[in-house]
């Protein structure tokens, strides 16, 4: 069986919104500890991994299941969530459906057909990074939107003193500098000066659900995928994006 109750459907909507920009379908691996899923996007440029510990739920009861879901349908349903709605996710093993229930003054139940997906064997590789930057999520997100004015890729740079988001168009360019002591930076640990280029569309998709108050952990190295980590609604999200080589 699987049944989980979350306090805010609206908050969880942000998670589904973000994940569904990168993936078409997902296989949730459910067990008594919580829910996990990870997958690469179809082009293998990006990886999404999420972990929902049982503590993120008000009520949680589960044994082991793999629940394959079409994310477009899941997103559409979650878009119907209202601000006071509780979210109940429950597996109907007989009908082979995932019930998504919004509970408020009444109950609205959407039943999604399960997809026959097997859990991805793809896991976030255990890469050691020389540099770790913790930055306020909205500051990083805004810098990416600024960069998007002039280019379709962005250069992320880090040295001992600052983290830089740079974009270079044919004619125009953009630079956002976050000095170590600026209010946007929570911490800046740099062992190796780094400069790497990444696709902006992917990066902006990865931070889609971020709002003010959220903090993003950025792992950066030379010629390495960038790794982003943050939490939304108690859900731990990890993203990996392969670099662009000049």
């Amino acid at each position: 069986m699987f049944r989980g109750v979350m306090e805010s459907a609206k908050e969880f909507k942000k998670v589904v919104d973000t994940v569904s920009t990168l993936l078409d379908e997902i296989c949730f691996e459910v067990d008594e500890e919580g829910i996990k899923a990870s997958a690469m996007d179809p082009s293998h440029v990006a990886l999404v991994s999420l972990e929902i510990p049982r503590l993120a739920f008000e009520e949680y009861e589960a044994d082991s299941h793999e629940i394959g879901i079409d994310l477009e349908a899941f997103k559409k349903v979650m878009n119907r969530a209202k601000s006071k709605d509780k979210l109940i996710l429950e597996l109907d093993e007989e009908k082979n459906k995932l019930n998504i229930i919004f509970e408020n003054t009444g109950k609205r139940k959407f039943s999604l057909a399960l997809l026959d997906l097997s859990a991805s064997s793809v896991k976030v590789p255990d890469i050691e990074y020389p540099n770790v930057i913790m930055i306020k999520g909205d500051a990083f997100k805004e810098a990416l939107k600024d960069a998007d004015l002039f280019s379709d890729y962005v250069i992320l740079k880090a040295d001992e003193d600052k983290f830089v988001v740079h974009a270079k168009g044919d004619l125009n360019d953009f630079n956002a500098e976050f000095e170590k002591d600026s209010s946007a930076i929570i911490s800046l640990e740099v062992k190796e000066e780094t400069k790497s280029a990444f696709n902006l569309d992917y990066l902006m998709d990865m931070v889609k659900g971020v709002s003010s108050g959220d903090i993003i952990k950025i792992y950066l190295g030379n010629d390495m995928p960038v790794k982003l980590e943050y939490s939304l609604a108690g859900v731990n999200l990890t993203f990996l994006l392969a670099p662009r080589i000049e």
Binding site: V45, N199, R244
Partner: peptide, 12 residues
């Protein structure tokens, strides 16, 4: 212009 790598290279 640059070349977009895939993650496959990093999963070996």
């Amino acid at each position: 212009k640059g070349k977009q790598l895939t993650l496959d290279a990093f999963f070996k």
